[in-house]
């Protein structure tokens, strides 16, 4: 798994590539926390190059979504979610907790 970050004026774009499982989820969670600890609560997670995500990754997203939504100061949105990952997110009831966008441009524009 690789994570890179691009800072925009109104939000941050976190590009996550490869596979997020129990081995790599802590690093993914750390990348999200690195943003929230800087007071950056508007985050687009771009999944275009994500191959796989288990519930360990979902938990990392959930924990950070709580931090971001607190006091209505922001939120995490998901962009370009591959169909298999989207199906797993739906099964886990996560599509009600995160806005999904077809591409990162639309997602960034949301903020």
């Amino acid at each position: 798994m690789e994570v890179s970050n691009q800072e925009f004026k109104h939000c941050d774009l976190l590009l996550v590539k490869g596979r997020v499982d129990s081995a790599t989820a802590p690093q993914f969670a750390h990348s999200l926390e690195a943003l929230t600890s800087k007071g950056r609560y508007k985050i687009v997670v771009d999944m275009a190059e994500l191959e796989y995500m288990s519930s360990a990754g979902f938990r990392a997203l959930l924990g950070s979504q709580r931090a971001c939504r607190r006091y209505n100061r922001g939120e995490i949105v998901l962009a370009a979610v591959p169909s298999r990952i989207r199906e797993a997110l739906e099964l886990a009831g996560f599509t009600e907790l995160f806005k999904l966008y077809d591409d990162n441009l639309k997602a960034v524009g949301n903020f």
Binding site: S55, F58, R59, L62, R66, R69, L91, A92, G93, L97
Partner: peptide, 19 residues
């Protein structure tokens, strides 16, 4: 896990087994 719970009440555990 209660998949209808809102963000603050959503459980962290039990999701893997549910899946």
């Amino acid at each position: 896990p209660n998949l209808k719970a809102d963000l603050s009440d959503r459980q962290i555990g039990g999701l893997g087994i549910y899946l």
